[in-house]
């Protein structure tokens, strides 16, 4: 079976692409870990157009319901993760080659085009101790796990929106919250910052570079350095939340498409095209500067329509059939 399109991921970009491809009656496969994308951990999304307020989980449900409405056109493989993609050797006479994707369940799927909407994942600190104490005091989802740090002294690394929001999540539970920021000021929106100002238990540490997470069975502390004075310091901690941005999930198409130094897939944003014909990309995995649900959905639509046009063109005669040299 050769699909017209395989969509990788079901956040706003992948889900929007699936709906549009289904309505074009293209045989589509959606391979994803889950629906909803990164904002599934958000308590309250207030900028999804048409919804004044919706939780990440409910938005994910809406995506899933919408895509599942088109069961005849869209096959869904979930939970399943794509691990690699490759181009299949062109058969003689074919104008374009197919793609093959391999998954963590050792399945292989073949498609004429790919829509890469694999999103991004939490960026890690990559310092000693982080992997050892992952889940053992090192946490990446404050919405989920903040209450478990009741009565503890904790640190949050990262002074962007996510970091400051983690501090807000921890305020009712932790006895002391250190917020470590590498630069000399916070990057979070002013409105978000205001919520943690003048709170006795919050201490903001600027110019801080994390060095090592300390612990035995569980986290007991953090070693960091003031990058201005080069002085090393230790904090005694019962937990640590990491909120330092995201890393694009682009490894699966490495070698096929051009990727920038941040790991983002370079797209021609007019058509959501990548550097490789037949591969389209949308959402947080791309170099689009605004990582937003609404934008990802719109770019997913672009990718779907471009994939559709690409497939229409494939149906035209190949150069070989026209008697021209095709190799």
């Amino acid at each position: 079976m050769i699909y017209d399109v395989v969509i990788i991921g079901a956040g706003p970009a992948g889900s929007a692409a699936a709906v549009y491809l289904a309505r074009k009656k293209l045989k589509t496969l959606l391979v994803t870990d889950s629906f909803g994308g990164q904002s599934i951990v958000s308590d309250d999304i207030q900028n999804w157009i048409g919804e004044k307020s919706i939780s990440g989980v409910d938005l994910a449900k809406k995506f899933e319901e919408h895509v599942r409405f088109f069961t005849k056109e869209v096959d869904i493989k979930m939970p399943e993760k794509v691990v690699s993609t490759k181009e299949i050797k062109c058969e003689k006479g074919r104008r374009k080659c197919d793609f093959e994707i391999k998954t963590d369940k050792n399945n292989k799927y073949r498609a004429k085009t790919l829509v890469v909407a694999s999103g991004a994942r939490h960026r890690k600190l990559n310092i000693p101790g982080e992997a050892d104490f992952d889940g053992k005091g090192v946490a990446y989802c404050s919405t989920c796990d903040a209450p478990l740090f009741n009565g503890r002294e904790v640190a949050v690394v990262g002074g962007g929106n996510a970091g400051v929001e983690a501090v807000i999540d921890l305020l009712p539970y932790a006895t002391k919250i250190y917020l470590l920021q590498r630069g000399k000021k916070l990057k979070a929106d002013k409105m978000t910052q205001d919520e943690i100002m003048n709170k006795d238990k919050v201490e903001i540490i600027f110019n801080a570079e994390t060095l090592e997470i300390l612990g035995d069975k569980m986290v007991t502390g953090l070693k960091y350095k003031n990058i201005k004075t080069n002085k090393e310091k230790k904090l005694k901690l019962g937990g640590l939340f990491v909120e330092i941005g995201s890393v694009p999930n682009s490894e699966i198409v490495k070698g096929l498409v051009k990727i920038d130094k941040f790991g983002q897939i370079i797209v021609d944003s007019k058509y959501s095209k990548t550097s490789h014909p037949g591969i389209f990309a949308a959402g947080d995995v791309t170099d689009d500067p605004y990582k937003q649900n609404n934008i990802s959905a719109g770019d997913g639509v672009k990718a779907a329509l471009s994939a559709y046009n690409y497939i229409i063109n494939l149906k035209k005669k190949s150069p070989c059939e026209e008697g021209k040299d095709c190799y």
Binding site: V41, D43, G56, V57, A60, C141, T143, C144, A146, P147
Partner: peptide, 11 residues
Amino acid sequence: STPTCPFCKQV
């Protein structure tokens, strides 16, 4: 579970 955790709700 915790009341705010999305994955808890999903389970």
